[in-house]
Structures are given as C-alpha cells and as structure tokens.
Design a protein around this nucleic acid. Structure first.
Length: 477
RNA sequence: CGGGGCGUAGCGCAGCCCGGUAGCGCACCUGCUUUGGGAGCAGGGGGUCGGAGGUUCGAAUCCUCUCGCCCCGACCA
C-alpha cells in the first residue's frame, strides 16, 4: 500500500503518531505532554460532543460550568481522592506577582469544587436529584504522554449528579454507562465491553467504577469511558446532607461520569489501516470528497463545474461534502491525502464521467471503486454512508471476536498474551494480591468484570481458588 | 527518578572523530510543461548550528557548565 506512512505491522506506535500528525488531527505543543488540536481533529471532537451533549440532555441533564482553579485544601478532603490525585496535580503557588497564602490546584477533575457547591444547593429532598454536566479542560501531570491517549491537559465532559437514595445513584451510574456504550457502538462504530473495575483500578474516591473497554488495532485494550457510583463519599467529605420527607437528615448519594478527547485516539486505533484514518460516517467531519480530474483549462472548467454541482446536490441531501478543486495538486496526491484523513467516500469526476453523467466512487473501507450515474449516486449516498458505518462496526467487532480468548491455564495465558494479544477471559480468585501478581509478571491488568458475563463457577488460573465468573485481562494503554 | 538517545532552514537529516566561516532531501516562492493513484525541469528565498562561558588567529566541530525534548521502565481518562 502506502510507503509514505509507516505500516501498522512495522511499528504501531509510530504509525499512530504519524497518522495523528499527518492526518491533521493534532500536533505537539511547546509544553511537554500538551497538544494542539488542529481544526480537522477538533471538528471530529465537536461531532462527538454534539451527539453526547444531545444524549445527556435526553436523559435529563443540564450543562453548567465550574472553575478551573480549586483551593488545594479541597482535594485533600476525601482520603482516597487525595491519595489518587496528589501525584499528578499542577499547583498554582504564585499569582499577581505574589506568593499565594493558599495554593490553588488546576482541576484534575471537579468532584471537590462541585460538592463544595452542592452543599449550598441542597437542603431538602425537593432539591434532588441534581443532574449536571460540564464540558471542560482538566490537567493531570502524567509521567508519560501520547497524543490524545494521555496528554497533560485534555478536554472532556464530566457529569456530576446528586441523589436522595443509593438505588437512584446506582441507576444513574448504569444509565450513563449505557449512554457511553451506545455512543461508542452506534456513533464511533467501536464495540465495547461494559464492566466493573476492580478495587485496584477504580476511580479514587468512588465506591464502584464502571467502564467501557475497547480493543485497539494492536490488540491492546483502551478504557474509553468511566461511570462512577460515588456513594456518600463526597457528601460526607463536604458535609452535604438533605432533609427527607420524614424530616430526617441524610447524606446525599452521588455519581460522576466522563469521556475525554481520548476517544479521538480510540477512534484512530480502532479503525485505522495502513493508508491512514478510517472515520465512521456518523462522526466524520467530511463524509464525501469530490475531486475533479482534468487536463487543460477547458477540461478544468468542465469537470470543476460538474464536481461543484455534485457537491452541492450531496450537501442538499445532508451529506457533509468537500469539493477539492485545488489546482496545485494532482489527483493521485489528493486521493492519498483524503484516504489518510479517513474520508469515507471519494467521488472522482473526470471528462469521460461528465460526458456520460457518471462518477467514479471510491469506498475508504472496502477500498473498492465503482462507476455509476450521478443520479444513482444521489439516490444511494445516504444509505451507502450508513452501510459504511455498519461495515466499520462489523469489521471492528469481528476483529475483537477473533482476538478474545478463553483461557484456563496461567502458562497458556502468559504465552498467548505475548504471542497473540487481545482480550483474555479468565477465572480470577477476586483478590488484589493475585491481580497484582499477574500484572507484575505479565503486564496485563484486569480491564473489567463484565456486566453481561454468565455465572460460571471455576477456578482461578493462578491460585486455583474458586471463582464466580470470568473477568477480562489485557495489556492496556 | 533510573537507563538510552537527540538538539544544525518549517520538517527529516549529513557535517563534528581530524577546527578554516554550513550542506542534502522534502516543504516553500517564480516560470513552463503536467494532471484517472503522492509529477518533471529550470531558477529562487530561508539557518545568531538549543543556551552560556572557555581554548584558538579562527569553533557547528575541542573543553566546562546549563536548558529542553524524545524513547524504555516505575503512576494514569
């Protein structure tokens, strides 16, 4: 295929880096671990935001905005929370030319400032539930960073809800997990496992953390979103109570849930191939690109006019269409460039096509070309994009199925983890010691305890102790 | 914080060992020819060689100090 792009099989991390940069998604910034999200990459994020925002609102949430700077003391209110986040805080110690009496931290997440606020908003059961989401940037000082997957500053949404009962909070936690699953599968065309995190992997300050977990093209796992049942941990830390209808005083129950610009990286690695990005039509900034092909000014005028007409008609059908009539580049260059950028459909319009009222249609996913009448294109285009959306999902699902292994012996696990990679469904005795041992020995972690897994008594592959069901192991990002 | 590597044109690199006043490819600009899978030729512009100090008649090159980045490991959406 393309020798101007590193092949996935040669060096997957390098392929990823090249695709992200040359595909105009993002670039490195002057500050370590930070990135510049370029217009094409940001447009992709905006499309994700638009869908998610709609889904949040359909489930009763409203948007608000809380501040970037948080009094340092807030972070230390909740024991697990402070322990989890302290190592990665950026702290503001000076401002206005003076040393601050009380330092501020740049939010790594907003639970603390939000629960400090909710204390003021909640006094009665009539004030509940509170269903707030915010779109924001956060900063976490990570040791190692990768574009989109782990950056020092990243963009995300964080939902923060307050409820009168434990059951309501649990319902909300699972409701939002389901929103994420739906979004990942129906819009990103990325199959995900839903499950519960182990104690070791859960959010610092949560009672339970649920996640959606996806498999990337290099057979490593990626946590793509999390939904936390926070119990009463933050209510107790910030003393948030309400009066029940019976006049009793109770602590409030909480959830939080988030997805970030990491999803852009997930999209790249879930679908990309050796020619570059493959974007699912529902999220692609450009769904179809029209390229006129000509020699000489006469043909240029002819084909550009036809191409523009086709582009306009497609736009009228609701297809996000771009006309690439740049005269400096030859068609071959443009083909490769739009393939690199993952545009699902390419429509070539040459003199022969204009004469016969046809186009040549190239499919980014199947990489097939088809000659058809312009009228046929118009009749088919929206359905074809949906077809591509399905094809992308099916391809990713097949890939995951092929790379999910059920293994009962630890020796086999260790061998196949290295040889094959992917998800491993194995029995585990439920102890943190065994979990840690496996991680130390194999670099694999428990990605989740799947929600839909059948009851299946068995024996832990390491200790032989009894296990209630299989959990998912993988090497992860 | 340990181990490895690198800072020379927008990007990728050579030059450094053996000091003599900076070069190659891509990109960029101009012109002509090209245009159905990353075009060709000709001409052109662009660099205080990461920074500071030192040695020397002379430093990208040698010496000292310093800053930054990348990769591999210990933390993580």
């Amino acid at each position: 295929m393309a020798d101007w792009l590193t092949k996935q099989s040669e060096d997957y991390p390098r392929w990823y880096q090249e695709v992200v940069q040359r595909g105009d998604l993002a670039d490195y910034a002057p500050v370590k671990g930070c990135m510049i999200i370029k217009p094409y990459g940001y447009s992709l994020w905006e499309n994700m935001q638009a869908v998610l925002d709609r889904m949040f609102k359909e489930t009763g949430h409203v948007n608000a905005y809380f501040p970037l700077l948080i009094p340092q003391e807030f972070i230390s209110r909740e024991a697990e929370h402070v322990e989890g986040f302290s190592p990665e805080l950026a702290v503001v110690t000076h401002a206005g030319g003076k040393k601050l009496e009380e330092p501020y931290v740049i939010r790594p997440t907003s639970e603390t400032i939000i629960w400090d606020t909710y204390k003021k908003w909640i006094s009665s059961y009539r004030d509940l539930p509170i269903l707030v989401n915010q779109w924001a940037n956060v900063v976490r000082w990570e040791m190692r960073t990768r574009l989109f997957l782990r950056t020092t500053e990243f963009l995300w949404q964080e939902g923060h809800t307050a409820h009168a009962t434990a059951d309501e909070a649990q319902e909300e936690t699972l409701r939002m997990l389901e929103v994420y699953r739906t979004f990942a599968e129906e819009y990103m065309a990325m199959p995900v496992l839903t499950g519960l995190k182990t104690e070791r992997e859960k959010f610092a300050g949560a009672v339970r953390t649920y996640c959606i977990e996806a498999l990337m093209g290099d057979k490593k796992a990626l946590q793509a979103g999390t939904s936390h049942n926070l119990g009463q941990n933050f209510a107790k830390a910030f003393d948030v109570t309400y009066n029940t209808s019976e006049g009793k005083r109770e602590f409030v129950w909480a959830t939080s849930w988030g997805v970030s610009t990491r999803l852009v990286g997930a999209l790249v690695m879930a679908h990309g191939d050796d020619a570059g990005l493959v974007l699912p039509p529902r999220l692609a900034p450009i769904q179809a690109v029209v390229i006129p092909i000509y020699r000489g000014e006469e043909e240029q005028a002819l084909t550009c006019e036809a191409a523009e007409k086709i582009a306009t008609e497609l736009k009228d059908l609701g297809v996000r269409t771009h006309l690439d009539d740049r005269d400096q580049m030859r068609p071959g260059f443009k083909f490769a460039e739009w393939e690199l950028k993952g545009v699902p459909l390419r429509i070539e319009v040459g003199p022969r096509d204009v004469a016969s009222e046809e186009v040549r249609l190239a499919n980014r996913v199947t990489r097939e070309k088809e000659q058809m009448k312009v009228s046929e294109l118009m009749a088919k285009a929206p359905a074809l994009l949906e077809q591509i959306q399905n094809d992308v999902f099916q391809r990713a699902l097949d890939f995951r199925t092929q790379n999910t292994h059920e293994v009962d012996s630890y020796d086999e696990f260790k061998e196949r983890l290295v040889e094959e990679g992917g998800f491993f469904r194995c029995h585990w005795d439920g102890s943190a010691e065994t979990e840690e041992r496996i991680q130390t020995e194999t670099k694999a972690t428990i990605r989740c305890i799947p929600l839909d897994a059948p009851e299946e008594p068995g024996q832990c592959m390491v200790t032989g102790k009894p296990s209630k069901g299989r959990v998912i192991f993988a090497r992860a990002y």
